[in-house]
Design a protein around this nucleic acid. Structure first.
Lengths: 228, 228
DNA sequence: TTGCTCCTCACGTCACGTGAGGTGGC
DNA sequence: TTGCTCCTCACGTCACGTGAGGTGGC
């Protein structure tokens, strides 16, 4: 049996058969004087076993091991375990994809993806559930109001900072109080969430953690105000 | 920001960052006179977008497309569709693996894998269900009895063939009748199953189709007996 | 002599990991 | 001067696909 015929009979490509020869997985038992590969009956039988094992998703190394006398049962079980791992991973990824696709409008999608990635790094799944609950409780109107509150507060802070007002000044202290209140609204008073939020600002930096809403200088100014 | 620092901050490896530079995905906006890569704030921001998109399982080409102004929503949706396809494939494979693992004893596992592979090529899923039902109906004892029947019949056929008995001889004709009966038991009289069985013997050859139980010569002898 | 089959290199794939060998910076 | 960080090649990974350039076999 020559290589083309065997390829047709087995559904493999000629190149694949040559590859198996190269790596020693299936070496034809004969060659013609011109170098043509000649496959004998036992070679054909071996190829069909190879095809069957490949059909289980085994690597060529595992196929070789299985044919080489290794415990086939163990090889297949390992493959099953690896596949289960892979499927679980795939399902988690699917979750993420679906979450960003229906959680964000198309034009803010990139932003939502980045936020999700950062949140996944800093909040536990439980904490993310808490945050989602709190957002749901606020409702659309509540969220929009909170965003307005933040924007107004930040404007005011920046104005004082630009004017050079001392952080201990009563006017700035009043802004600090509003700041605390908004954070309190975000965390719902949960100490764990508060810690995670702080840790995120610490490790990611104010600019990324706030998604561009504030920078390091504003943050420093407010820290001094809240400590003073 | 130098490359090591950025690697630590982003969780990527230095090599990966160099790779992104090589392929033009993230080219640092500066180099020191000694050739050190210097990443500016916008480079850092771009890297974090890259990391976020990679976290969705996008290829670097898709990441580049998404950052290059392509419709992120469409890119992510395509990724989701591809992942679903992949998951379905994985589940089918898992099915196969589980099927051979609990359908066969360890020492006949290799054989079961080959049989399953061949059956999957020649019987439709419905037909395989039918066969499974018929096996279940026969029970362990029935299956063992059928195997004994086949073994005895084959011994008898080989004996007549070796003795040079003409296929039209009444003794051989009686064997042919038993042969038909056993096949009838296997197919349950279903014409579709019978056709698939014949097609399998046709394309795979008697030796492989019967898993070594009979060879081309016995098969030819019986064909003549049944036609005669 | 003309198609068809076969042969042997050898590069390309994807996203880096892993040295090798060398140099800037504090 | 000594560590530490950085640099540029360049091979290896996995299972082949895809030419290029050439030669048997009927």
């Amino acid at each position: 049996m020559r290589i083309g015929e065997l390829a047709r009979a087995s559904g493999m490509t000629v190149r694949a058969l040559r590859h198996y020869d190269e790596i020693g997985l299936l070496v034809p038992s004969e060659r013609t004087h011109a170098g043509y590969r000649v496959y004998a009956g036992e070679d054909v039988a071996r190829l069909f076993r190879i095809v069957a094992l490949r059909g289980l998703g085994l690597s060529l190394a595992d196929v070789a091991a299985a044919l080489g006398g290794h415990d086939v049962h163990a090889v297949v079980e390992r493959r099953l375990a690896a596949l289960d791992e892979q499927l679980a991973e795939g399902r988690r990824l699917r979750e993420r994809l679906a979450r960003v696709l229906d959680g964000a409008s198309p034009h803010e999608l990139m932003d939502a993806i980045e936020r999700m990635t950062m949140y996944d790094r800093h909040y536990t799944p439980d904490q993310q559930d808490q945050l989602a609950e709190r957002r749901a409780a606020l409702g659309e109107d509540g969220l929009a109001a909170a965003e307005r509150d933040w924007a107004e507060l930040l404007d005011a802070v920046r104005a004082e900072q630009a004017a050079g007002t001392d952080p201990s000044d009563p006017r700035v202290q009043e802004l600090a109080a509003r700041w605390r209140a908004l954070i309190q609204q975000f965390t719902g008073g949960d100490a764990g969430l508060h810690d995670s939020l702080n840790a995120m600002y610490e490790t990611e930096g104010a600019a990324r953690a706030s998604r561009g809403a504030l920078d390091g200088e504003v943050m420093d100014y407010m820290r001094r105000a809240m400590q003073g």
